[in-house]
Amino acid sequence: MPRFTFDQAADFADAAREMADAGRPTLARLLAEEAADRTPDPDTAARILGEFPGRSLRQED
Score class of each variant (00 low, 15 high):
M1C: 04
M1V: 10
P2I: 09
P2V: 12
P2W: 05
R3C: 04
R3H: 06
R3F: 08
F4C: 02
F4V: 12
F4G: 00
T5H: 14
T5P: 00
T5R: 14
T5S: 13
T5C: 09
T5V: 15
D7G: 14
D7M: 12
D7Y: 12
Q8L: 05
A9P: 00
A10P: 00
A10E: 08
D11R: 01
D11I: 05
D11L: 03
F12T: 01
F12A: 03
A13K: 12
A13Q: 12
D14W: 03
D14T: 10
D14F: 06
A15E: 09
A15N: 04
A16K: 02
A16S: 11
A16G: 04
R17W: 13
E18P: 00
E18W: 05
M19L: 14
M19I: 00
M19F: 14
A20G: 02
A20R: 14
A20E: 13
A20F: 11
D21C: 03
A22C: 01
A22V: 02
G23N: 07
G23C: 09
R24G: 01
R24E: 15
R24K: 15
T26F: 12
T26C: 03
T26A: 14
L27S: 06
A28C: 11
A28Y: 08
R29M: 03
L30S: 04
L31H: 02
L31Y: 12
L31E: 01
E33R: 10
E33D: 15
E33K: 04
E33H: 08
A36H: 04
A36W: 05
A36M: 03
A36F: 04
D37E: 12
R38M: 15
R38C: 03
R38W: 14
R38I: 11
T39A: 01
T39H: 01
T39L: 00
P40L: 10
P40N: 05
P40D: 10
P40K: 09
P40A: 10
P40F: 06
D41K: 10
D41H: 08
D41M: 07
D41T: 05
P42G: 02
P42A: 10
A45H: 06
A45M: 07
A45C: 05
A45K: 07
A46H: 09
A46T: 14
A46D: 12
I48F: 06
I48V: 13
I48M: 04
I48R: 03
I48L: 13
I48W: 05
L49N: 03
L49Y: 11
G50I: 04
G50V: 03
G50F: 03
G50E: 05
E51I: 06
E51P: 00
E51F: 08
F52M: 08
P53V: 06
P53E: 04
P53W: 07
G54M: 13
R55I: 09
R55L: 14
S56Y: 08
S56N: 09
S56C: 04
S56M: 07
R58E: 11
R58L: 12
R58K: 13
Q59F: 13
Q59S: 11
D61E: 11
D61Q: 13
D61I: 11
